[in-house]
Amino acid sequence: MKKEKQSRKKPAKGVTRRGFLTGMGTAVVSSAVLGPVLTSTQAETLPPTRPKGLEDISLTVNGITYSLAVEPRWTLAEVLRDHLGLTGTKIGCNAGECGACTVILEGKAVYSCSQLAVWLDGKKITTVEGLASSGDLDPLQRAFIEHDAAQCGYCTSGQLMSAKALLSRNLHPSREDVQRALTGNLCRCSNYNGIVEAVLAASK
């Protein structure tokens, strides 16, 4: 896996729990894909190892293009979380029902648990991390904070992405438009009214 463009800012100093875990994840994944680190003498005699059945794809996620080798059975949600360290996308039901894994694929909200990464060669994806890629929160995210739209928070990134897909094609949706656009995102805390208020506020 290699990033052709690196735009994420590293924290200036110190180690965060999330940063540590994310780094560990990437290290483990890299070694799984590239094989064990070899000494210089071994490297000359052993062929490069690569698990069978991997397919090379290129994904552009939040403006960064990644070259990846994926198993056909890996879902986009799994690749985002386990291989790119983008854990803002959540997996709830893993069955295309709850909406926690919603991302924007080529401008449209989709369930990333129900997309195989191998199908997405060359596609553009926006995850919740992409909403604040410059470091400033998206107006939607600010509205979610102001309207207490997150309770337990597990569905929040999916709700944000469905709302973002709506606002990118309809700048001033009605309340009914918002409710309709969010029907594929379940909230077990049942904070639907707060979420709808937040989206409406962000659209003003």
């Binding site: 989709v110 369930y111 309709r180 995102n185």
Partner: peptide, 9 residues
């Protein structure tokens, strides 16, 4: 049918 995410694909 289903939800927006499913109708999209």
């Amino acid at each position: 049918i289903a939800s927006p995410q499913i109708r999209n694909v």
